[in-house]
Design a protein around this nucleic acid. Structure first.
Lengths: 348, 348
DNA sequence: GTTAGCACTCGTTAGATGAGAGTGCTAACA
DNA sequence: TGTTAGCACTCTCATCTAACGAGTGCTAAC
């Protein structure tokens, strides 16, 4: 959308209507505007301007002779042009920092912590898409003996995520065997991405099977044990926050959202879309392109490690969302997450 | 409560009222009972019996001249004496099995999966208390070098849980150093419980500091890095399911619950109480002893590994809960969780 | 271009009303 | 003595109506 396509007075009125509606969830009329905001205009004048704004699609009326509320187009203009950033308070900054710090030792918990923080600060349902795979590479792999038949398979990715898995084997082995296998796997797999993994392993297996029976068996077990396809996930936190919003007072209105939160497939689709562009992403109303949810907006931001986009995190709320605040929060939290994920991980 | 303190006809009526009310959420009157259930009694007789049941506290009326609903005492009698177990269907059994199996490689995910399954099957909010510490012992500890300054600290507990933590160190080390430290720690810490950990480490440090500077440094780092107190947690899933219940139609009624779900402290208290007794635990209404939630019941069951109670898992719903079904589900799921947690773990 | 005035619209609220479900009580019945 | 029919009474809920008021568009005056 081009910037500044409205004259200053119309902009002022659109801003006032939007700001007020975001606060009160009530349609707002010309009289109220004239009274509350000293624009130096009479209700009648404001009425004329509002009629214009409605005609050009920035405002709408819930019904004849009610006040005006912003249309999706109005919100879009507000977000692109009119909105003023709201700074976070010292306390909020400190809160974010300390909440992150308390989980900083484990990347998976950081992701959970992120949505918790977002839900807490915004009071909207918050979502995070876990790191996608296409780019994730092996950095370290290790087999650790737990007892005679049980081995812990540990994988560290180059983005610092740690995965572990228990493996039961029925071939006798010594710790030294495992170390040799670990070393072997490390030498062969480091830098290989998740999607190349299975092909690489089968290839290796073919080369080696005859020459080294033990390694061959290890590879076979590995192939059996590794999931066909490691799936991205979406974590949701604070879904019930949506009940705080007046537009979801009737339980009926909440159902479609509830259903969506139950279906991870849909959440994946929703969140994946905003992976394409680095940084903030705001989808208003039908821009979400999801027929399940109406009159909602999604604000997300990508998070990254060493400049590589891993996933995306954000909140979902009614179109009458406090954009100014949420944009600030989501942006900051996503950056904080990126920072904590990168911690201790020099570019390799 | 003593068993069978009501005569059979009163029992029959109490059962009918409770069963019907659990299904319909509507107070049920004498005429309806006479019509729907062929007890061979006229409405007037039933009316008399119901008046008796009300007087002795098993039934109550929402208001004069409405039908009757069970009181907490009535529910208690129903649960203790009248209720008939409902078996799970083949599909449900298969569903539980496959959902567990898909996460069986990682204990932490098993816990998450458990609440998901419960929420799915019962349509009530589901909670799980993560394993408590007093009994958890170290089984294996290992330091793994990731790069020059970054070490992965891996801890396996004797109950099969795996914890990992990234540690940054500024003292140069070789992989062999780490192996020696690992071996040393293993020899000293195996079998030590979490609560004895810090004392043990400080003791070791005192003994060793002068004789072996390198181990001393390692111990110091470890002490710095280990959390003061590893906290039990409560995971919640399907909180929004509560909206399906008619008694939570008005959003106002949901608020107290919502607030409770936000405060992990309270959930911990709620869930910890049922750790005391092995197996199923049913708390009805004020038996929950929590002023934040009214007219709710909690059904939990403990889960264990090798006969040791680790935590507890269950659901929270309105007192008008489908006890028969939920009891069966919670019981089965808790046992399934125990089974999967124990898998691959021979008694050591 | 702005403003005051006015008739009109439409959702919300407060009573009023009637139907319906259910009760307790009394008296008759087996 | 336990059971049942009858009946007056109670209380909720859904429906309807009327008054209200916030807000509008339009017209005419400033």
């Amino acid at each position: 959308m081009t910037r500044r396509e409205l004259d200053p007075r119309k902009e002022r009125i659109l801003r006032v209507v939007t700001d007020d509606y975001i606060k009160s969830a009530e349609p707002i009329g010309s009289r109220t505007i004239a009274r509350k905001h000293k624009l130096g205009l009479s209700p009648a004048t404001i009425r004329n301007e509002m009629a214009d704004l409605e005609e050009s699609g920035y405002l709408k009326q819930p019904y004849t002779s009610a006040g005006r509320i912003p249309s999706h187009r109005g919100y879009r203009y507000y977000v692109n042009v009119l909105m003023e950033q709201k700074e976070l308070t010292e306390e909020e900054l400190a809160y974010i920092e300390s909440e992150f710090a308390s989980k900083a030792f484990e990347h998976q918990s950081l992701l959970h912590q992120t949505v918790k923080i977002l839900a807490q600060l915004t009071k909207y349902p918050s979502l995070i898409l876990t790191p996608r795979l296409n780019e994730i590479k092996f950095r370290h792999i290790q087999l650790i003996p737990l007892d005679n038949t049980c081995i812990l398979l540990l994988v560290v990715t180059d983005t610092g995520f740690i995965e572990n898995k228990l493996v039961e084997v029925f071939v006798p082995f010594t710790p030294e065997d495992l170390n040799r296998v670990s070393a072997f796997l490390n030498s062969k797999l480091r830098g290989v991405s998740w999607s190349e993994l299975r092909p690489t392993l089968t290839q290796l297996l073919r080369e080696i099977r005859s020459s080294n029976r033990f390694f061959g068996q290890a590879l076979e077990t590995l192939l059996k044990v590794l999931p066909e396809k490691r799936q991205e996930r979406v974590f949701v936190e604070g879904a019930i926050n949506i009940l705080e919003q007046p537009e979801f007072r009737q339980v009926e209105k909440v159902k479609p959202l509830m259903n969506m939160f139950e279906e991870e497939e849909k959440l994946l689709e929703l969140m994946s879309r905003s992976l394409l562009r680095r940084g903030l992403n705001i989808s208003i109303g039908e821009e979400i392109q999801n027929s399940d949810i109406n009159d909602c907006s999604v604000i997300t931001a990508t998070y990254e490690v060493n400049g590589r986009i891993l996933g995306t995190v954000g909140v979902l709320g009614p179109t009458r969302m406090d954009y100014a605040r949420v944009v600030t929060v989501v942006d900051f939290v996503a950056k904080a997450l990126s920072r904590f994920l990168s911690k201790g991980y020099k570019s390799q």
